[in-house]
Amino acid sequence: MSRLTRRQALGAAAGVAAVVAATGAAQALPARTEGHGADHGTGHSSAGHHSTGRAAATATPGSFDEVYLGRRIQGRPSHGGGHHGHGGGHGGYTVQVDGKELHVMQNADGTWISVINHYEPHPTPRAVARAAVVELQGAALVPLALS
């Protein structure tokens, strides 16, 4: 009978942990993305936008308006091509935290980032707004200075 080495045990444990993490992320994804139909808690509709897979990442997200951790976050598609004409080819999307614009951009893979979470992509603008609220820790959002 062969004995299990420490390296083999650690490798097996890492493999199990990766499977558990991937399964948990896959199960949590529909709850974090904006589904089709009513946007829970806001009454806004995002009909026609599916919340699974890469197709959702390329579809324009619906509007949202909620209070998250005591801060009002809002988001909606815009027609101006983004912040001061820097649309990035995604048709424009406006996000506000307590009435002040949070500059967001959509990456080529469909994920979203903001000036607050530039190196932390999120699946939707709502997720980006929530992450920014957490990162701000109660601080006010200051306007982005452009030359």
Results as ranks from 00 to 15, higher is better:
15 G>Q: 08
30 P>T: 11
55 A>C: 05
85 G>R: 10
63 S>Y: 10
121 P>K: 12
80 G>P: 05
88 G>R: 11
36 H>G: 15
83 H>T: 06
20 V>C: 04
88 G>I: 13
62 G>L: 11
103 H>S: 02
87 G>S: 13
111 T>W: 01
24 G>N: 12
68 Y>H: 08
37 G>A: 15
59 A>Y: 13
5 T>I: 06
44 H>A: 00
126 R>T: 08
101 E>K: 03
96 Q>R: 09
30 P>M: 14
116 I>V: 07
104 V>Y: 00
133 V>G: 03
63 S>A: 12
8 Q>K: 11
45 S>G: 11
104 V>Q: 01
58 T>C: 12
22 A>V: 12
10 L>A: 06
16 V>T: 06
102 L>A: 04
5 T>Y: 02
67 V>D: 10
59 A>R: 12
42 T>W: 09
8 Q>P: 05
114 S>N: 07
97 V>A: 02
69 L>T: 07
9 A>N: 14
73 I>P: 07
40 H>L: 11
102 L>H: 01
64 F>M: 02
125 P>V: 07
125 P>Q: 09
14 A>F: 06
103 H>P: 05
92 G>D: 08
69 L>E: 12
35 G>L: 15
24 G>A: 15
41 G>W: 04
80 G>M: 03
87 G>T: 10
76 R>N: 01
5 T>C: 10
18 A>C: 11
133 V>F: 07
20 V>S: 04
11 G>H: 07
136 L>W: 10
119 Y>N: 06
106 Q>F: 00
92 G>M: 03
76 R>D: 00
44 H>M: 02
137 Q>D: 15
130 R>Q: 14
32 R>P: 04
43 G>H: 09
15 G>V: 01
31 A>P: 10
41 G>R: 05
132 A>L: 02
88 G>V: 09
110 G>V: 13
124 T>L: 08
40 H>W: 04
48 G>I: 10
30 P>N: 14
32 R>E: 14
119 Y>V: 05
57 A>K: 06
48 G>M: 09
29 L>Q: 15
76 R>I: 06
22 A>M: 15
128 V>D: 03
30 P>F: 14
117 N>H: 06
64 F>V: 08
14 A>P: 00
42 T>M: 01
6 R>C: 12
127 A>M: 11
132 A>F: 03
132 A>Q: 02
18 A>I: 01
16 V>R: 05
44 H>P: 00
92 G>H: 02
135 E>C: 03
50 H>F: 01
8 Q>W: 05
125 P>F: 04
80 G>F: 01
77 P>I: 01
124 T>I: 10
44 H>N: 03
40 H>S: 10
46 S>C: 12
30 P>R: 14
111 T>D: 02
122 H>L: 09
127 A>K: 08
37 G>F: 13
53 G>V: 05
39 D>K: 13
97 V>R: 01
60 T>Q: 12
49 H>C: 13
53 G>M: 07
75 G>H: 03
34 E>Y: 14
48 G>F: 07
85 G>I: 10
112 W>H: 08
